[in-house]
């Protein structure tokens, strides 16, 4: 082969390579992966899938939801942080990122991510069975205070899970010792609520949205919401401050995050698309109908909010002996 044939071939090959390389083409030029650290069918999966659907319309390329489950979210969060930071892998981050490193499960913290936006927040709550003797959160608090430890038990997540911490944070803020309310681990809030209605435990400190159908069926009574204001879906349920005077607040949130050091072009495009998707009617209606809370924060505010939760959850976990 002489040089006259090699050169044009080489040029053609380079053109082809250039055409295929993402650096030269405009982002996005191929499908984007959206990693969800929780299983298909859960609340995070639902938020991830609707978001993926809208982002797909905004960006003009398929956004594929990929469930990477297990290890209380460690597996999925690790996959997001360790992905190639080319803008083609993003993920849904959940509040567990602020807990897993305290538990000694991983070295990964929120600082290993580029947090693009906060798109949802659901305040924690206090729920009891309809036939329970306590009509208000203050009555429940007094009952816990005056009875021997273990009289009231709680459930709603795994051991050391977010609603376990919510319950601990609340009773600590009321000056109750942490061993007063033993926690019964369950596979998610629905299982905990079912167990409560069956008479297995006394209270479930999960978000009210998770108990919505049982509340509407008259089987579960909501006593408080750990938020600044009452929730639109449950206007009759007082905030914790109104109910007992406690300052404890906790919301579980979902954020869209990416691995660190993405190209600026991809990052800007993604953030703009995420904000548009958040404000779309489809997303707003979806969240309202599912009973999920809406909350928006851009990259800086979102990172600050995640950092604040990291500190407060770390404190609770250390006091409760759950941190390593």
């Amino acid at each position: 082969m002489d040089r006259r044939t090699v050169l044009p071939l080489l040029a053609a090959a380079m053109t082809l390579a250039g055409w295929a390389s993402p650096a030269l083409a405009e982002y996005p030029e191929r499908p984007i992966e959206l990693i969800v650290p929780w299983g298909a069918g859960g609340g995070t999966d639902a938020v991830g899938r609707i978001f993926g659907q809208i982002l797909q319309e905004e960006l003009g390329k398929p956004v594929n939801v990929v469930n990477r489950t297990g290890g209380s979210g460690v597996v999925g969060h690790t996959a997001i942080a360790r992905a190639k930071p080319d803008g083609y892998t993003i993920g849904v981050m959940t509040i567990e990122i602020d807990m897993m490193h305290w538990q000694g499960l991983t070295d990964l913290t929120y600082q290993d991510f580029d947090i693009l936006a906060l798109v949802n927040a659901d305040p924690g709550g206090i729920m009891v069975a309809e036939d329970a003797p306590w009509k208000t959160a203050a009555e429940l608090r007094d009952a816990i205070k005056s009875s021997p430890p273990g009289t009231v038990k709680a459930s709603g997540t795994g051991q050391g899970g977010i609603w376990h911490l919510n319950m601990l944070g609340w009773i600590m803020s009321e000056g109750i010792p942490i061993d007063a309310v033993p926690f019964v681990p369950s596979q998610g809030a629905a299982a905990g609520l079912t167990d409560m209605v069956a008479g297995g435990v006394g209270m479930v400190p999960s978000s009210l949205a998770e108990g919505r159908s049982l509340i509407e069926a008259g089987r579960v009574r909501a006593l408080a919401s750990m938020s600044d204001e009452r929730q639109a879906l449950f206007p009759d349920v007082p905030t914790l401050k109104e109910a007992t005077g406690s300052d404890w607040k906790l919301s579980v949130w979902r954020a869209i995050a990416a691995p660190k050091d993405m190209p600026a072009e991809a990052r800007d495009k993604l953030i703009a698309a995420i904000e548009k998707a958040y404000n779309s009617d489809t997303y707003q209606n979806f969240m309202k109908e599912r009973g999920f809370g809406l909350r928006w924060a851009g990259p800086e505010d979102a990172t600050a909010a995640v950092a604040a939760d990291d500190a407060s959850l770390g404190e609770v976990m250390k006091k409760a002996g759950l941190a390593k």
């Binding site: 298909a40 629905a190 159908s213 049982l214 089987r219």
Partner: peptide
Amino acid sequence: FGIPGDSITAIVIG
């Protein structure tokens, strides 16, 4: 009661 009997109905409830 809006309680999922399996992972399919969990999606269905949504």
